[in-house]
Design a protein around this nucleic acid. Structure first.
Lengths: 141, 141
DNA sequence: CGGAATCCCTATCGATACTG
DNA sequence: CAGTATCGATAGGGATTCCG
C-alpha cells in the first residue's frame, strides 16, 4: 500500500514506472480482456448467462434490439475465449444451448465490481459529462 | 446468494429475467463504462496516472507507441467523464498536468479486480483461443 | 431453430504534418 | 511543450436475405 500517490497495490500499478514497450502493451492481458468485454453486447450476454443456460432464441428474445449477426458474433467471441460453452442438442430442428464455463463464471464477480461502481457513480459521470460538454466553446481554463 | 445458477448477488444479476428493452440498454451504466475504458488506451493511462500526476509528454514517453492524437483523445474522454483533471500551468511554454480526480481514483480498485482476473486467467484464455482457432475448419461438434 | 452471407455505414485508430 | 488538422485504413455494428 505504498505506491506513489493513490496507487493501488495490484497488477494495475506494477511495472508502470518506465516506458511501456510495444510488446508489453500487446501482451497486456488487462487491455485485452477489457476490449473483449468492452464491446456493445458481451457484458449483457454474460450477465444473462450468469443466471443460467439459455438457448439462442431465448437470448435473442431477452435482448430485443440485438441483431442475429451481433448475437452470433458475440457468442462466438465469448466461446473462443473459453467464457461460454455451446452445446448442440441433436433434436429436429436443432437446439443450441449456451452457458457460462467455469472461467466465465469466475468473471462474474470481478465484473460486478465494475458494474456496481458504474451504478454508484453514474450520476457523477453524467454530471461531469454535461458540465464538460457545456463548457465547450467557453473558456478552456 | 440465491440466484438461479451461478448468479452473483449484485446489479449484474438484477432485472435480467425479462426482455431488455432498448431504453434499458441505452441507460445501462455498466456497458457505458466498459465501453469507455474498453478502448485501446484508457486503462493504461488511468493506471499510469494512478501512480501520480503526469505531464502530457511524460505520458507520451511512458506509452511509446501511442500517437499524439490518441493520447489527446483518450485524455479528453477521461476528462469529459470526470475521471481525469487537466491543469494548465501558465509557464512559457505552457505545461499541462493530468491527474486522476477522486472519481478516477475510486475506479482504480474496481478496475484492478478485472486486471487481476485477467492476469490470473490469461493462460487459460490463450489456450482456449488457440484451441478454438485450431478447431476451425474441423468438426463443429 | 440457429444460424451464414452479403452489403453498407460509421466509429476508431494510426501516420504524418503543422502550430501557438 | 502540448497540442490540432487531415487523411486513409481497419474494425465494429446493423439490415436484409437466404439456408440446412
Amino acid at each position: 500500500m505504498s505506491a506513489t500517490d493513490g496507487g493501488v497495490p495490484t497488477a494495475l500499478s506494477a511495472d508502470l514506472g518506465l516506458p511501456i514497450t510495444e510488446d508489453e502493451h500487446q501482451d497486456c492481458p488487462a487491455t485485452d480482456v477489457l476490449r473483449r468485454i468492452g464491446d456493445k453486447w458481451s457484458v449483457l450476454v454474460v450477465a444473462i448467462l450468469g443466471r443460467g443456460p439459455r438457448r439462442y432464441n431465448e437470448l435473442h428474445r431477452s435482448i430485443k434490439e440485438i441483431s442475429q449477426r451481433m448475437l452470433t458474433r458475440t457468442l462466438r467471441g465469448l466461446e473462443r475465449d473459453g467464457l461460454v460453452s455451446r452445446t448442440v442438442h441433436p433434436t429436429v430442428p436443432a437446439t443450441v444451448e449456451y452457458a457460462l464455463t467455469d472461467l466465465g463464471r469466475s468473471l462474474l464477480l470481478p465484473l460486478s465490481t465494475i458494474t456496481d461502481w458504474a451504478l454508484e457513480n453514474r450520476k457523477e459521470i453524467d454530471e461531469a459529462r454535461s458540465l464538460h460538454d457545456r463548457s465547450q466553446g467557453g473558456s478552456r481554463i
